[in-house]
Design a protein around this nucleic acid. Structure first.
Length: 906
DNA sequence: GAGCACTGC
């Protein structure tokens, strides 16, 4: 069947190539040449102006196409290795680093002389040497008095008395060395590591730090975790008169509010380019805009276009990757134009459409515009589409690119503006048929970038030490540390508290603020409270602080260089969340977070050599590392059939597309020709994953749509329903087990949670008592309401059938039958279709029950391959529900004689 | 008996 789909895809491609477009070929060619001439003229003109130092508008070369193609091909090849080579788990990483540290330690021991040179300080830091020395001794002493527990990855017996005790340190190190090498005898990697050392040495030398010996002559090794940084570069701020800026803001306060707003608008860097920009928009259909942070592009460009009359023939859409951005920017613009939000200026996000008939400037999330495509495939009501923050490459923006590029061909009146960061501009330009690039400078403060001199074995410890180092040596200003997840943040918080405890007035107060998305809202508010005079704030954040939220007052950024990233293996259909090194683009973005309100400093816990050689330039776009089932369904329902040749900017792996087609076919959303079926059309109405939407559509048959949409809503919020604070884990677990009485399975348990919450009239108190996140539940309610509305639209009656759990389970199975698994003798499971060994996730209510057959919501790879959210299944259902997918032999209970029911590992 | 970054529809 799949082959049939593929063959069809291929045929379409052939058809397309020889389609009637040929006729218009020569005409459009002529136009293109004319266009080219005009571009050339403009470029010449621009170049002249550029020389005068006023503005930059550059033309793109066409010659890069081939190069680009080669890169694409190699990217595709790399995809195969993505799970094995490029990403590696944190454990492996730490282990490797640990070995490296051991190696270093051995060198230490063999060459005692080295110990006395151990402290290497950059010249900048020499001044503060004495001051630091005192404070480090103090911190060291106090922190060890405070911890009689095992320090995080600290050897047991370092310098117990608080003073410097080289002898003891030496013996501990020696002991560690012996312990490890007793078994190993020798290190087979020594040679490789020596070579690496050498290479790293070469790299660090470039940045100079001669005379280090002088620096350490009068310095004792007091704080062995001291980290040395090298100031490698300064990320330039823009040439901008800050005094003038503040001055003008000051002056504008005196005027009336609206005058002040207008005056401020004129002070934005973009204002000087207004006329040039409008000219360029008039001349070209597609324009790539490079507007740096603070240039005012998001708020101003739509206004300029409105003033120039583009709104006479349709709305101006401006897409944002995030809801908050769409809301806040539109509010600002409404204020500047002096209109009420929701009238001329509005925003449209999921659950909230704040627009009206009058609306001409519409800010929206990118996913929302994508949804609008479904109802209006040519975007007829828009005259301009501006894709903002395009460099973030969200799944939705990537699809939007292909779609808007396509419609721009037959809608010459539609203007496209793509706004991106500097680095990607050329790529965007190439993709949009060499669209001109328009550059607007921003307002940024310079950021000093420091690298470590040597790789750090334990980045968490290094980050903590660095933050303390900053705290005692650097002028006031808050610190932002990027960590990978909740657990790590909690650990870091504990260690920091230990180390600063009891220091009293000896050092300034250190306020520790954790922040991650799953943190309850009331605790999140803490990071926005202004830092009291004399104190310093340390923000421990996940990637959320990289783009999603901005914290004022951050002056120092500590970047260990890791992030938790989702990747998808199309071969097995398994998603995994792995700690991976960040990209250079990401590192720059992180560094930039310190320069928002004044000059900043960024401390990277890796070497300049690592940065140059080990980090990718850009993060792999989401479209290349995700399950595409939803994307494929959306595109198919937009009438785009030839997916293998859809004009993606970075095409996803073909395997992932095929996997998605295969799944949609199995769900009967596509027929064997790869065409959308009636079921598929209905499924596409629901903004959830295809398996969930199939489950919803099928619930009509089993008369349990009310229950199913509750389950679907709960499943689509994912993992943040149950709150599990570190100190009350037992209570939280018990509370959760209450919903599992009768071993009904996780899906039904979720339904119970939702219904119980509803019965308490959506009580917040109830949530606290049951360790459930209120925020997630409210979200589930919103999603459920939306799904209920959509059910009406596809004419499915709302019915409930709570007493018949089998009906509900059958609906679930109808959506999730490809995710079925059978118990093995050893207590593990094997997936029915792919014979893959998997396990029940311990958080499941059925973890102890071990049903013979199970259907699961998703597979995640952590320490093992786990099924999350599972429900028991009767094997005959599989054949009944999906006869095209399972045959009797698949579900024949071969093991039934060997292992009767209930004999599982009890 | 384990542990989940961030968005978005």
């Amino acid at each position: 069947m799949l082959m049939e789909i593929l063959r069809k895809e291929g045929e379409r491609q052939v058809k397309r190539r020889t389609s009637p477009d040929e006729d218009s070929g020569s005409e459009s060619e002529e136009e293109r040449l004319k266009d080219q001439r005009e571009k050339d003229e403009l470029v010449q003109h621009m170049k002249e102006r550029d020389a005068a130092g006023t503005r930059k508008l550059t033309e793109q070369k066409l010659t890069r196409k081939e190069e680009e193609e080669a890169v694409r091909r190699s990217n595709a090849a790399e995809q195969d290795d993505i799970h094995s080579l490029r990403k590696f788990s944190r454990q492996e990483y730490l282990k490797k680093r640990e070995e490296k540290k051991l190696e270093e330690l051995r060198d230490d021991i063999e060459d005692e002389q080295y110990l006395f040179e151990g402290v290497k300080l950059s010249e900048v830091e020499q001044r503060d040497l004495r001051h630091k020395k005192e404070l480090y001794e103090l911190i060291k002493k106090r922190s060890e008095e405070a911890d009689n527990v095992n320090e995080y990855r600290m050897p047991d017996a370092y310098d117990q008395e608080g003073g410097v005790n080289q002898e003891k340190r030496f013996s501990v190190a020696m002991q560690r060395y012996r312990d490890t090498h007793a078994e190993e005898k020798m290190n087979p990697f020594a040679e490789q590591e020596a070579w690496e050392e050498h290479q790293i040495g070469k790299a660090t030398l470039k940045y100079g730090s001669k005379n280090k010996k002088q620096a350490s002559d009068d310095y004792q090794y007091v704080f062995e975790d001291q980290i040395d940084f090298i100031k490698a570069s300064v990320m330039d701020g823009d040439k901008f008169d800050y005094d003038e800026m503040e001055d003008s803001i000051e002056k504008s306060k005196a005027k009336s509010a609206s005058e002040a707003l207008q005056a401020e608008r004129k002070k934005l860097p973009i204002y000087a380019y207004r006329d040039e920009l409008l000219k360029a928009v008039e001349k070209y259909q597609v324009l790539v805009i490079v507007g740096e942070t603070g240039s005012g592009k998001t708020t101003q460009i739509p206004q300029y276009l409105h003033e120039a009359g583009y709104t006479k023939h349709g709305m101006i859409a401006c897409t944002q990757p995030r809801r908050v951005a769409a809301m806040s920017v539109s509010a600002r613009v409404a204020q500047e134009l002096g209109v009420k939000l929701g009238h001329e200026v509005g925003y449209s996000i999921r659950f909230e459409d704040c627009t009206s008939d009058k609306t001409i400037l519409k800010y929206m999330t990118d996913g929302m515009l994508l949804r609008e495509f479904l109802g209006e495939p040519d975007l007829a009501s828009y005259s301009v589409v501006m894709v903002d923050e395009a460099h973030e490459r969200t799944l939705s923006t990537d699809i939007l690119f292909g779609l808007v590029k396509d419609i721009s061909r037959f809608r010459p009146d539609l203007k496209l503006l793509i706004s991106s960061a500097t680095l990607d501009a050329e790529k965007f330009s190439d993709y949009f048929d060499s669209a001109p690039i328009f550059k607007i400078p921003g307002r940024r403060y310079p950021v000093e970038i420091h690298f470590t001199k040597a790789p750090e074995a334990d980045y968490l410890d290094a980050a903590i030490v660095t933050s303390l180092q900053i705290h005692v040596t650097q002028p006031p200003g808050d610190i932002l540390i990027f960590l990978t997840g909740q657990e790590e943040i909690e650990t870091a918080e504990e260690i920091l508290k230990h180390r600063t405890r009891g220091l009293g007035t000896k050092i300034a107060e250190l306020i520790i603020c954790p922040i991650y998305a799953n943190l309850p809202t009331e605790l999140q508010a803490k990071i926005f409270e202004p830092t009291p005079e004399g104190a310093r704030k340390v923000v421990l954040a996940t990637n959320i602080a990289e783009t999603s939220l901005t914290i004022d007052g951050i002056k120092y950024v500590i970047d260990p260089g890791f992030v938790k990233m989702k990747s998808y293996n199309p071969k097995t259909g398994m998603e995994s969340l792995l700690v991976s090194p960040i990209s250079k683009a990401s590192a720059m973005q992180r560094a930039g977070r310190s320069g928002r309100t004044g000059p900043g400093k960024c401390f990277r816990l890796y070497t300049a050599y690592n940065y140059q050689n080990d980090l990718d330039d850009n993060t792999v776009p989401e479209i290349q590392r995700t399950n595409l089932a939803n994307v494929v369904l959306t595109l198919k329902s937009l009438g785009i059939h030839d997916l293998l040749h859809f004009d993606f900017m970075d095409p996803p792996p073909a395997e992932a597309l095929l996997k998605a087609l295969e799944l949609l076919f199995a769900l009967s959303a596509l027929n064997k020709l790869g065409e959308l079926t009636k079921v598929g059309r209905r499924m596409a109405e629901f903004p959830v994953d295809p398996m969930l939407s199939k489950m919803i559509v099928v619930s009509e048959k089993y008369k349990c749509s009310e229950d199913i949409i509750s389950i679907a809503a709960m499943l689509s919020i994912g993992n943040s329903i149950f709150y599990r604070p570190k100190d009350k884990q037992v209570h939280a677990d018990n509370a959760r087990l209450n919903f599992h009485t009768g071993n009904v399975g996780d899906h039904i348990a979720l339904l119970k949670v939702y219904n119980s919450w509803k019965e308490t009239n959506y009580s917040t108190q109830w949530c606290y008592e049951n360790y459930i996140q209120v925020r997630s539940m409210k979200r589930a309610r919103d999603i459920r309401d939306q799904l209920a509305g959509l059910l009406e639209r596809v004419e499915i009656e709302l019915t409930t059938n709570s007493s018949d759990l089998d009906a509900i389970k059958k609906s679930i199975t109808s959506g999730f039958f490809p995710h079925s698994a059978k118990l093995q003798k050893n207590g593990s499971y094997r997936t029915v279709k792919h014979a893959q060994t998997v396990h029940i996730h311990p958080s499941s209510g059925l973890a102890q029950v071990l049903p013979r057959w199970a259907v699961y919501h998703e597979l995640v790879l952590t320490t093992k391959e786990y099924m999350r959210q599972i429900t028991e299944l009767k094997p005959e259902w599989l054949v009944e529900i999906a006869p095209h997918y399972y045959q009797l032999k698949d579900v024949e209970d071969t093991s039934s004689k060997k292992m009767p029911r209930g004999e599982g590992r009890a």
